Amino acid sequence: MSDKPMRKGITTGTCAAAAAKAAIMAWKGQPVAAVEVISPQGVALVAPVAGSYAIAGGGTAWVIKDAGDDPDITNGVKIVAEIMISGEPGVMIKAGEGVGTVTKPGLAMPVGEPAVNPGPRAMISRAVEECLPPGMGAVVTISVPGGEKLATRTLNPILGIVGGLSIIGTTGIVEPMSEEAFKNSLVPQISVVQALGYNEIVFAPGKIGQDIAINRYGIPAAAVVQTSNFIGHMLEHAVKYGMRRVLLFGHLGKIVKVSAGIFHTHNRMADARLETLAAYLAAGGAPQAAVEEVLASTTTEAVMPIIARYDMTAVYKVLAERASARAERYVFGDLAVGTVIVTLKGEILGLDQTAREIGGHLGWNIR
Rank of each mutant, 00 (worst) to 15 (best):
N75G: 07
A18K: 08
A138F: 08
P48Y: 02
M243I: 11
N199S: 15
M92H: 00
T11M: 08
M312N: 06
K254N: 04
I262Y: 00
A223W: 08
P157S: 12
K149I: 13
G232I: 00
A23R: 10
A314Y: 13
S86V: 00
G87F: 00
G285L: 03
Q210D: 06
S324R: 02
G42H: 06
A260S: 00
T299K: 03
E175Q: 14
T152Y: 12
E175W: 12
V337A: 12
I168G: 04
I124K: 03
V102K: 04
R268C: 07
G90C: 02
A81K: 04
A16K: 01
V315M: 06
S143W: 07
A50G: 11
A296V: 02
K4C: 05
M109Y: 00
A47I: 10
V315D: 08
M304N: 06
S178H: 13
L274R: 08
A108M: 13
G147T: 11
S185A: 15
V162E: 15
K183A: 12
A151V: 08
A279E: 06
Q353S: 15
V239A: 04
I214F: 09
I167C: 06
I64L: 09
Q41K: 15
I341R: 02
G164D: 11
G98L: 10
R244T: 11
A286T: 01
T101K: 13
V246M: 01
V331Y: 09
I10Y: 14
I231E: 06
E236D: 10
C131A: 15
F203Q: 04
T343R: 01
G172A: 09
V111I: 13
P89W: 03
G359H: 02
E200R: 14
I161G: 10
K21F: 05
E293Q: 13
H361N: 13
T101M: 12
L235K: 00
C15H: 09
I124V: 13
L349S: 05
G363H: 10
P133Q: 14
S143A: 12
D311Q: 14
K345A: 13
V63P: 04
M269H: 11
G197M: 06
G363C: 10
V63K: 06
I358D: 09
I201A: 10
P89D: 07
I158Q: 15
T154W: 07
V49E: 05
L235C: 00
I341L: 04
G253H: 03
I10M: 12
L159A: 13
V225H: 04
I307G: 03
P118V: 07
